[in-house]
Design a protein around this nucleic acid. Structure first.
Length: 654
DNA sequence: TTAGGGTTAG
């Protein structure tokens, strides 16, 4: 061993002076000299080469090892060549031509070398090559191993070819019962699930003789992706040993299905039972907080991220998710603090921050950051342009928006997509250029989606144009026949124009389709971050009487300052007195009154609403911020409104 | 060899 190691270390290649091969002088002297057989020497050399390969950092070093194999007469050694092939795939070196030449030089590849080659194609494509190679292998009389099937199934998954997957599955059953192997079983489940055949995946799972946490988690994820969180939760409850990935699948599943409260419940339970948290879990929990819009949870999750060692300074994905979360929780300042603290920023970080500024009406800051980004190596992508166009749109910067849209492809290589057209329609529409917006839609090189027509319909509400609204709504009724918001918006536009017959016609249409109006609902954070929920007209809160009195008192004070109820915000053909009564019980007003009662004087009030804030509530919020000296932050289903000293950040432009 | 992830406009 000693003699051999010394000899090995004399090579001039820097690669082989690797410290793993260094044998200390002291040990050489103290150890008795035991001669090794030729076979033992060869085995030792092989294992040392495996270690060297393991430490390689790229193709150049791998090629050096390959050359060394020839010098040592090991160019036919399948054991080392298999490792070499796997390292090539690790560094994304294409299989052709280098790996293919290497493989072709081997006279009798063993099943592991065949499989490494098959695996290379199943990771890189062309995926059909994996199957061709498998057929060659079989023709040459080499039997497969379980890895062979996992590699082949991976290729089927990547190609989303379930028919081929079924054939491989049949082979795995017929040749030596490989389908009973745990790894093959898990890969089969994954293949069926990713190809969208959930019941087949479930059948494999049910018939597996041995299952592990990976089998369970694969299925949990599939149920979550199909939207069936109840089935996912049943499986999770039955899972004997729940690891971090399984817990994460539940947190992420609830977050992705728009159920942030449950996502955070699972995240909290996960902490309670002492399961570790990594950046993937955190991203799920952070996304849940963003949906919930509650600062209390946001700060808690941020603390967990810091304690787990995945704070924004250390992890760019967590940092970017936190920027989005703070923006959606109403604190663009906190979002920017995270952005500034990040040691690495990518296109997600910049785009999230730009969108954050846009959402809060800070168009100037959004544009500044965009120009700052252009000076870095990070190139803007389609989402970045959605951000800057939205920023322009929300403050009426029409010319700047037009210029960006016209030059985005030529100057930045991002061709306008249907989403960017939607932003432009929004920009033109909000600014009152409804005809121009309609012309732009007609000129679109692609089919407009609901977002495009929806932007036009929204603009028609702002500018009271029932004729263009009808055109937009008729398209929307075809594209999104069950989206109730479009019917309500058109009905409100008719109501504003006094066209009550048309209002009745739309209401009838909604009834015929069985569509029911979503009740307005607002949430407000009271002391200790407890969230209270209010529905429109809802007087079931334990403090309802106090809330009613506080609201009446507030409105009286506002009337002294010239406030008049905006009766056109009520889209019902009822008496003015009834309209005033309906306006009084809008959910955001109840939430505001409760917020004033239950939070400390001087602190800001945060309200989240499920629908768009109405004009009357908007002016009440403006007035309330002035006479109470409180900052009021309202997140409606469109954007943020920051009310300070009688002025809203949206510039009354929403 | 096998499982979980971030920004999008009405």
């Amino acid at each position: 061993m000693v003699a051999f190691s010394r000899k090995f270390c004399t090579t001039r290649s820097p690669l082989f002076s690797h410290k793993q091969l260094f044998v200390p002088q002291e040990r050489q002297q103290n150890q008795p000299f035991i001669p090794l057989s030729q076979l033992q020497q060869r085995k030792l050399l092989e294992s040392q080469l495996i270690s060297v390969l393991h430490g390689c950092n790229g193709l150049k070093q791998i090629k050096q090892v390959h050359a060394h194999l020839f010098r040592k007469g090991l160019d036919q050694c399948c054991f080392v060549l298999t490792k070499l092939l796997r390292m090539l795939t690790k560094f994304d070196v294409p299989m052709d031509p280098y790996a293919r030449l290497l493989f072709d030089q081997v006279k009798r590849p063993n099943p592991f070398l065949w499989t490494a080659f098959i695996r290379g194609y199943s990771l890189q494509g062309p995926f059909a090559e994996s199957v061709l190679l498998y057929n060659c292998m079989r023709r040459e009389g080499t039997g497969p191993v379980s890895f062979t099937f996992t590699a082949l199934l991976k290729a089927c998954t990547a190609a989303l070819d379930v028919n081929l997957g079924r054939q491989i599955h049949a082979q795995a059953i017929s040749i030596g019962g490989f389908a009973n192997d745990l790894y093959v079983g898990n890969t089969l489940i994954d293949m069926y699930l990713k190809c969208g055949v959930l019941d087949c995946g479930r059948r494999v799972f049910d018939e597996m003789p041995d299952k592990d946490v990976i089998s369970w988690t694969s299925l949990i994820v599939a149920y979550a992706k199909s939207g069936d969180m109840e089935a996912a939760a049943r499986l999770f409850d039955g899972l004997p040993e729940k690891d971090m990935v399984a817990w994460t699948a539940m947190v992420t599943g609830y977050a992705q299905n728009g159920r942030p409260r449950e996502a955070l419940e699972y995240f909290e339970r996960m902490q309670d039972v002492g399961v570790e948290t990594d950046e993937v879990t955190l991203v799920g929990a952070i996304s849940a907080c963003a949906q919930l819009g509650a600062a209390k949870y946001a700060n808690w999750v941020r603390d967990v991220a810091e304690q787990s060692g995945f704070g924004p300074t250390k992890n760019v994905v967590v940092g970017s998710a936190l920027i989005d979360m703070y923006s959606k929780c109403g604190s663009v300042e906190d979002a920017y603090r995270v952005f500034e603290a990040m040691s690495e920023r990518n296109v997600f970080s910049f785009s999230s921050m730009i969108l954050g500024f846009a959402m809060h009406g800070r168009a100037d800051a959004a544009m500044r950051l965009f120009h700052e980004m252009l000076k870095t190596e990070t190139k803007p992508n389609r989402v970045t342009f959605v951000g800057v166009l939205t920023a322009c749109s929300h403050v009426g910067m029409v010319e700047q928006g037009r210029h960006l849209f016209a030059t985005m492809e030529e100057c930045y290589g991002v061709s306008p997509s249907v989403d960017h057209y939607a932003c432009m329609v929004d920009l033109l529409g909000r600014a009152g250029c409804l005809e121009e917006a309609l012309k732009l839609i007609k000129k679109m090189p692609m089919e407009p989606h609901g977002g495009v027509w929806g932007a036009l319909l929204g603009a028609c509400r702002i500018h009271g144009n029932p004729d263009i609204a009808e055109i937009a709504a008729n398209h929307l009724f075809e594209i999104e026949p069950n989206a109730i918001g479009n019917y309500i918006l058109l009905s409100n536009i008719y109501a504003l124009a006094g066209r009550w017959d048309d209002v009745s016609r739309i209401r009838k249409l909604m009834r015929e389709k069985g569509l029911r109006k979503n009740p307005g609902c607002s949430w407000v954070e009271a002391k200790k971050g407890v969230i209270h929920e209010f529905f429109a007209g809802d007087m079931t809160h334990p403090k309802s009487n106090e809330i009613k009195r506080a609201l009446e008192d507030l409105l009286d004070r506002l009337k002294e300052h010239g406030y008049l109820p905006n009766l056109s915000s009520v889209a019902y053909d009822v008496s003015d007195e009834d309209k005033k009564r309906i306006l009084m019980t809008h959910s955001e007003k109840l939430a505001l009154a409760f917020g004033l009662l239950s939070t400390n004087v001087g602190s800001s009030i945060r309200i989240v609403k499920n629908l768009r804030i109405c004009e009357d509530c908007h002016s009440v919020m403006c007035g309330a911020s002035q006479i109470t000296g409180r900052e009021i932050i309202v997140r409606d289903n469109m954007r943020f409104h920051h009310f300070r000293d009688g002025v809203c950040s949206c510039g009354n432009f929403w």
